[in-house]
């Protein structure tokens, strides 16, 4: 068995999401090759070669691949999958992976499994459906299995320790259908709630809207988004676009810090898929502690400034 992983990168560094995907490939078993498709991205290939468990790195370095345009990269991947005999094509379930892989699958005339969270066997996987409110166990019937991997479900492999060979891929596919125009990297350190890796949220325990400044200071240090519970929104502390759990605001960051949030089920439903949950609340009985990986029973007005100072 052989797996081809599409590296997530920005032409200079390999993104950590790739390491989680390698872990998923390891769970499947067999040889693991990584495709680095980009422009002037030799450095990425070198980093990928170091990744534990990777046996081969394919480097497709061409201007056509510089901005990860799916119209150009998908035919490359499909061709590699067919000609080099890969049984699996994996990518992280990032916006890049999600943009690319279905296009690859359709070119290969196979289905695609999105966002897998567990490998049950060589052809059977678990994946969340209904915003994580149900988990489906799905068997792939296709010869080539095209899969995106939810990073938080697989612990990353080591970024170092491997010594894969790097092979150049010379095939160039330029569909001339699309062009990169511009990019706007989120300016502030305050990402969108749904895209944030770390979220710090305040509840009614914050007392008023001004006190959310305490959370913002911590958020600035962690590059986190600031959210709020419905109780805090209903109390008029903050606007409702900060509410975690409302329509479209189901979040699943790596770290979720709940401050002064009791943990009403509506809120839990909006964030329970977070990888690590921290609760800071002075009420020892608050239901949030039942789901928190780390609970701190403390007055938030002492604990939050102290947290900011420690980071």
């Amino acid at each position: 068995m052989a797996t081809l992983i599409i590296a997530e990168h920005d032409n200079s560094t390999l993104k950590p999401a790739t390491l989680n995907t390698v872990a998923a490939a390891a769970a499947i078993g067999g040889d693991v090759a990584v495709l680095v498709a980009g422009e002037s991205c030799q450095a990425v290939a070198d980093q990928a070669a170091q990744v534990a468990g990777v046996s081969k790195v394919l480097l497709a370095d061409n201007a056509a691949y510089g901005h990860q345009l799916a119209e150009n990269i998908a035919p490359l991947v499909a061709e590699l999958a067919k000609t080099a005999g890969f049984d699996y094509v994996l990518a992280p379930a990032t916006t890049t992976g999600k943009n690319l892989l279905p296009r690859v699958a359709a070119l290969l005339d196979v289905g695609q499994l999105s966002d897998i969270v567990a490998v049950e066997s060589a052809d059977t996987f678990k994946r969340p459906i209904y915003a994580g409110n149900a988990i489906a166990t799905v068997k792939s019937l296709d010869a080539i299995k095209v899969i995106t991997v939810r990073g938080t479900a697989f612990d990353p492999v080591a970024a170092e320790g491997g010594s894969a060979s790097v092979e150049a891929v010379t095939a160039v596919h330029d569909a001339a259908l699309s062009r990169f125009v511009s990019e706007e990297v989120a300016k502030s350190d305050r990402p969108e709630l749904t895209a944030a890796r770390v979220i710090i949220s305040g509840g009614r325990g914050m007392g008023n809207g001004e006190n959310f400044a305490l959370l913002e200071k911590v958020a600035d240090k962690l590059g986190a988004a600031v959210g709020a519970s419905r109780a805090a929104v209903d109390a008029g502390f903050v606007p409702n676009d900060m509410q975690v759990g409302q329509t479209g605001k189901i979040v699943a960051p790596d770290l979720y810090i709940a401050v002064g949030i009791s943990g009403a089920i509506q809120h839990l439903a909006g964030m329970k898929d977070s990888k690590v949950i921290v609760a800071i609340n002075k009420d020892e009985e608050a239901p949030i502690f039942q789901v928190a990986d780390y609970g701190l029973v403390a007055d938030l007005f002492d604990a939050v400034p102290e947290l900011e100072g420690t980071l």
Partner: peptide
């Protein structure tokens, strides 16, 4: 292209540990 074998509710999250201080957290 796929076969749905089963659907289950997500595993209930279990509480972890209580930490004693911000430093420990």
């Amino acid at each position: 292209h796929t076969e749905l074998l089963s659907v289950e509710p997500p595993a209930e999250r279990k509480g972890g540990i209580k930490v004693g201080s911000v430093a420990e957290l």
